[in-house]
Nucleic acid binder design. Structure first.
Length: 257
DNA sequence: ATGGTAGGAAGCCTA
C-alpha cells in the first residue's frame, strides 16, 4: 500500500511543527506540499529528513513554492511545468518515487478575474492539460496532486451563488479542470465519495472554519494505471483545527502495491 | 457586514 497526500501549508517555516507532527501521525509514504514560501536553501530539509523522508523542492522568495517528501528514493526529478520556460513562478515539481510518478501542483488562484491573473491561470491550466496528456503516453501510474484552486462543482462550495464569479468557480476554470478528467485522469475523492460534501480549505477571514464554510480545491488526479490501484481517499480535518493552522488541510489516498 | 485574517516582505501584496 502506498499512501500519497497533498497539503498547502501556507509557509513551511511557520508550519514545520505541524508538518512534522502530521508525518508522524498520518505516516504518508509521499507528501506533496504547496505554498512553501521558501527559497530552496532556506527549506528545513534536515528536519524533514530526520522524520525519515527524502526531499526535493522548487521554491522562490515570498510566494508560491512546492516540495515533494517521500519515504522512498526520489528519482527523475523535474522542476517546473513545461510549455513556458520564461515563467518564474515556482508552482510545479515532478518526480518518480515508489514506482509512481507524482507531481506537486500549486495552480494559480486567478483573482481578480478582470486582471491578467485570470488569463495566466487559464493558460497555466492549458499547459498542465498538455503535459498531463503527454504523461499518459507513458502508461504508468501518475498522481497529480495539489492545490488546484478550482472548485469542480457546486457541491464543493458552501455558497456557490456568492462564489459564482470567483476565479475558483468560473466556468472557464471548471471547463479546464474537466478537460483533465476527460483526458483520462480520475479525481480520487469525488470518485470514491460521489455525494459527500467535504472541503479542504476554509478562509482565515470571517471565521469560515468555525462556521463550516469551506471549499474543496485540493485534489489528487490519478492516471488510469494509478486509478486501478485506488483503495481509499479522504480529507484529514485534524490539522485545520489545530493552533497555528494552515488555511488548507491534507487530502490523501492509498494505492494498492 | 464589500469587511474580515494570515504570512512574508518592507512600509503592500497575495491569498
Amino acid at each position: 500500500m502506498l499512501k500519497i497526500a497533498s497539503w498547502n501549508v501556507n509557509s513551511i517555516k511557520v508550519r514545520l511543527p505541524a508538518v512534522v507532527g502530521w508525518l508522524g501521525n498520518a505516516r504518508p509514504d509521499v507528501l506533496l506540499l504547496q505554498e512553501t514560501k521558501s527559497l530552496d536553501e532556506a527549506f528545513p530539509r534536515l528536519e524533514i529528513e530526520d522524520c525519515g523522508y527524502n526531499v526535493c523542492v522548487h521554491g522562490q522568495k515570498t510566494y508560491n513554492g512546492v516540495a515533494i517528501l517521500s519515504r522512498r528514493p526520489l528519482e527523475d526529478v523535474s522542476v517546473g511545468l513545461p510549455g513556458n520556460e520564461e515563467d518564474p513562478q515556482a508552482r510545479y515539481l515532478e518526480a518518480v518515487t515508489g514506482g509512481v510518478r507524482v507531481a506537486s501542483i500549486y495552480l494559480p488562484n486567478g483573482n481578480p478575474v478582470e486582471t491578467g491573473k485570470f488569463p495566466y491561470k487559464l493558460a497555466w491550466m492549458d499547459r498542465l492539460a498538455d503535459h498531463a496528456q503527454a504523461l499518459l503516453g507513458h502508461e504508468e501510474a501518475v498522481v497529480l496532486g495539489g492545490d488546484y484552486n478550482v472548485v469542480p462543482a457546486d457541491l464543493d462550495c458552501y455558497d456557490p451563488w456568492a462564489w459564482r464569479d470567483d476565479a475558483l468557480c468560473r466556468i472557464e476554470s471548471r471547463a479546464r479542470f474537466r478537460t483533465l478528467l476527460h483526458g483520462g485522469y480520475v479525481e480520487a475523492f469525488r470518485t470514491l465519495h460521489p455525494q459527500r460534501r467535504a472541503y479542504t480549505f476554509w478562509d482565515y477571514q470571517a471565521g469560515r472554519w468555525q462556521k463550516g464554510e469551506g471549499l474543496r480545491i485540493d485534489h489528487l488526479l490519478l492516471s488510469p494505471e494509478a486509478a486501478d490501484r485506488l483503495e481509499e481517499c479522504d480529507i484529514d480535518l485534524g490539522p485545520r483545527g489545530a493552533d497555528k493552522a494552515s488555511d488548507h488541510t491534507p487530502v490523501w489516498c492509498t494505492l494498492r502495491e
